[in-house]
Design a protein around this nucleic acid. Structure first.
Lengths: 223, 223
DNA sequence: CTCTTAATTGAAAGGTCGTTCAACGACTGC
DNA sequence: GCAGTCGTTGAACGACCTTTCAATTAAGAG
């Protein structure tokens, strides 16, 4: 259990019989504000992954981060603010990974494949990450800041996919509505995330990926 | 605000100057256990719809139901038990409605259409209902009883859809994996529910329905 | 080494939470 | 009418929640 490292350290010091005047081990270590903020956000993410929104409490997060109760409100005005920081962290993580995967690709077909692959790769498509998404989704409706962040993320995501779909359709001279297919693809991915998170026994990540490829193939031809 | 109907009734009585000996209005009314249970479950559903899992508190539910704090634990051993009852209620509501819609249909094509239509009909596809589903999804991972109920519901749902898909495929002499298409369709529906619940401005119920029809058409032919 | 700064602690305040339970009183059967 | 049943109330309890803040002290500057 994290969080009482301080106490343990003190006990060790006393047991060793060190005198008061000797240089004693510090009771805590200072951190650069940015570093500490990240520590707290990371701990909060782990809490969400472990126990959903019910585990998103100040004491649980501080214990997980190994800091005292008071510190959380020194870095975040409120628990709500911390939740927004968590959403941004998770969002950025997904965006960064997608960007990395997209880096080498230039064909729109390649890029669409990469987006699907990224969505079901081991880095993204694992229980604890999806559990965090699930917990965050549950808060979007009741938190205006989260709502705005969510809208921005999803609009951008659908737009990016629509852009690649349009390129493929033009190249293959297909008449279809790119925005509509982008909508279907994002919904299918989210639906697979949701259902696999709630019950991972029904299908494998590979099958999920296949489902997306099947959709693209049926609407755009060979994939 | 509900929940203080008793007090209001008493005040009204006093203001009217009724004597103590006169037949006074009862402080509460008894209900058959089944009726009261349903009242509580219904109130809990409304709370979930209004404020997500954060509004699923004993005081909020009792206020919504117009009963006193203590009564909730007279009918449900714990809040967790109540949540399971809520899940069953919402589940049964969906199942009943789908059964009604399916009643007159005999063609497998007709039945598949009916399932999609039901999923995006006004009775099911509205914000407060989807908000309840969203809140419940967020609890499935952390509540064993909910987890079991969820698995039963979704396995049955996927199986029913797979059955109709198989019938269509056989009739049209198509070689495809019915379970795989059933998986895609349920995931697409859930994904559309999720995304519309989180941001209803992006697409209309009609567009959501079209997305599902498009999927069926692309894989099974004209729909 | 001393002074200064500000990151960190931990106790305390003030709520709200879920649950329990003794007392109340609305109804049923007699 | 009367008595018994049991659905219902509401106060009380202990646990836990978030936020605040004065005191502490690690760490960098002079």
């Amino acid at each position: 259990m994290a969080g009482n490292g301080t106490i343990e350290r003190l006990k060790r010091r006393e047991a060793a019989g060190e005198s008061e005047t000797r240089t004693r081990e510090p009771r805590f270590s200072r951190q650069q504000p940015d570093v500490r903020r990240q520590q707290i956000v990371d701990a909060a993410v782990r809490c969400l992954a472990k126990g959903g929104v019910g585990a998103f409490t100040v004491s649980a997060i501080c214990a997980e981060a190994g800091i005292s109760h008071g510190l959380i409100n020194h870095y975040f005005a409120s628990k709500e603010d911390l939740l927004v920081a968590v959403y941004e962290k998770v969002t950025d993580g997904l965006a960064d990974f997608t960007r990395t995967i997209l880096a080498g690709r230039h064909d729109p077909e390649d890029k669409l494949r990469a987006i699907v692959d990224a969505s079901f790769s081991g880095e993204i498509f694992h229980e604890s990450n999806l559990a965090v998404w699930l917990a965050l989704w549950g808060q979007v409706r009741n938190n205006p800041a989260l709502r705005a962040a969510h809208k921005e993320l999803y609009d951008g995501y659908r737009h990016a996919i629509g852009h690649q779909v349009r390129a493929v359709a033009q190249r293959r001279r297909l008449a279809l509505n790119p925005a509509r297919l982008a909508l279907s693809l994002t919904a299918l991915i989210d639906g697979l995330w949701l259902e696999w998170c709630l019950d991972p026994t029904v299908f494998s990540p590979e099958e999920a990926k296949t489902a997306c490829y099947d959709l693209l193939q049926a609407r755009l031809g060979a994939f």
